[in-house]
Amino acid sequence: MSELLSAPVDGISGATAAELLPEETVRAIADEIWASFIGEDEVLVPLDGELPAATVSAWVGIDGPWRGRVVLTTSASAAEELTRALLRGRAPAVLDAEDVEDGFGELANVLGGGLKALLPEASSLTLPMVGAQPPASGPDEHLVSSLWRGERVDVVVCSVPLPH
């Protein structure tokens, strides 16, 4: 991901991720995406569960007066099932890693875009990245956990510190 280079300006720059994008906002946007793209009956249940040792994450950066990151994390199997749900009847019997990276990354992209649109000042979005280990979160990491088909799905929103 391209790191976000612009300096913060007065206004929303001092706000924490949770102040700018509170839990209910994150849940509302995620619920809308799940209903539209994953399936009408697919729901994110606001409960904690266990994340497996091996997870996959997809993330996008938000670049503007507030600089932040939105990270979606779940198990590898759930990421594959989410991609299969996105493709619905067009999913091949065996999804390759590139398909899952594409589909899961696009989910993070749409989630980041939906949250970015709610910020009080105009910002831009970086292209999505996918990997086993997302970049380290800032001190205001804001975690929203859910269960989807019994698998834990985390959304983390955080500020991105300026490079020193």
Binding site: T83, L86, R90, D102, N109, L127
Partner: peptide, 13 residues
């Protein structure tokens, strides 16, 4: 769209 999955979703829609 740079996402093949999203192109499929757009075409399906």
């Amino acid at each position: 769209d740079d996402s093949r999955v999203m192109r499929q979703i757009v075409i399906r829609t």
